[in-house]
Nucleic acid binder design. Structure first.
Lengths: 181, 181
DNA sequence: TATCGCGTATGATATATGTCATGTCGGACT
DNA sequence: AGTCCGACATGACATATATCATACGCGATA
């Protein structure tokens, strides 16, 4: 029962689109926050450089995702944004974004809804990932999502942070042993 | 640089407080969504009953936390809410909550900010938890948070989903071997 | 001063899981 | 029909980690 809930993405109408080649950098950590971004196509990764030179990927935003939402209230970006594929993004200065959000309560509400859902599902994912055994993680995942469709087990393995062989072994175990799964 | 950003919690002013005894149930899964809750004191757990009768804890909300924010746009609750300790909560019907949020753009913005920060930190946590080795998780955690204060290592272990002995062993290893940490 | 709780620390042992390898099956495309 | 690719599946093996146990130092408290 979702009432009149306009999509917050309409805030980005009228904004110019920017094309990014794969590997292009949108912003770097510690850059002053100027823009809010909406990914239109392709994918953009948020990553953090680590001491050993490697990068920790924090998120890969794809079409329809906002980028670094938390920067709305920060002075500087907290990580790097790099295009993983050729991509298009829309952008809006932070001030414009805030203004429009205030003028469009329904859009703000829709953004709140989007965030709330994310927070909820991420919390669940975290709890699953904190479980030690593959068996427990699978139980939890199934309790939350139900049985996946054919061809999706591989995605489940990724979701619960387990190697594919480990997952299939667990599935085999369940097929043999009791009656579950 | 956070501008005039009133706290979204002011939305709950004027609302009556409800006392909960430890173990009390605020709502159950599939109950129709009536109220939005703000935890004032104590802690309230969100959990999901699993097939084997045990409960998967999805979140433990404490003072200042909203409860089940995603229910704002849902017909029914998706999990059970049970007081983990004696607790006090404020509540507001969903309709009232929505109305007030629309009337107070600054509060809505503040809620968006709160959510955005949560989404961001949860994403980071998820990526850390997906790493296989304790060593990698620790590296990532340290890159994001810096060295913890004394007495906090035990919390780090919990954060990165690793047993305390495993963490201390890794720390010992680093003390011995190269020059890190 | 004694006791308690908590964070820190380390050892021994079992085992669950990752990694590497190999193979089957089915669908899509040529 | 043949080829390719991705999901499904399983074996062998090494090892990283959990678990259980024990112990130390320190601050709080009685």
């Amino acid at each position: 029962m979702i009432y009149v809930m306009s999509d917050w993405r309409i805030i980005f109408t009228d904004t110019r689109e920017h094309a990014l080649a794969r590997g292009a950098v949108l912003f770097r950590r510690d850059d002053p926050v100027r823009f809010m971004y909406l990914v239109q196509s392709g994918s953009v990764a948020l990553e953090r450089a680590m001491a050993d030179g490697t990068a920790l990927t924090l998120h890969v935003a794809t079409a329809g995702d906002a980028l670094a939402e938390a920067s709305l209230f920060a002075d500087t970006y907290h990580c790097d944004a790099v295009a993983r594929t050729d991509a298009r993004v829309a952008r809006l200065t932070r001030a414009d974004f805030l203004t429009r959000l205030k003028r469009m309560p329904d859009a703000a509400l829709s953004l709140i809804g989007t965030h709330a859902k994310q927070v909820q599902s991420q919390r669940a994912r975290i709890e699953i990932l904190r479980l030690r055994r593959v068996s427990d993680r699978l139980d939890a995942w199934l309790a939350l999502h139900g049985a996946p469709e054919k061809g999706q087990w591989v995605r489940v393995a990724d979701d619960i942070g387990v190697s594919q062989p480990a997952l299939y072994r667990e599935l085999a175990r369940r097929r043999r042993k009791p009656g579950a799964c």
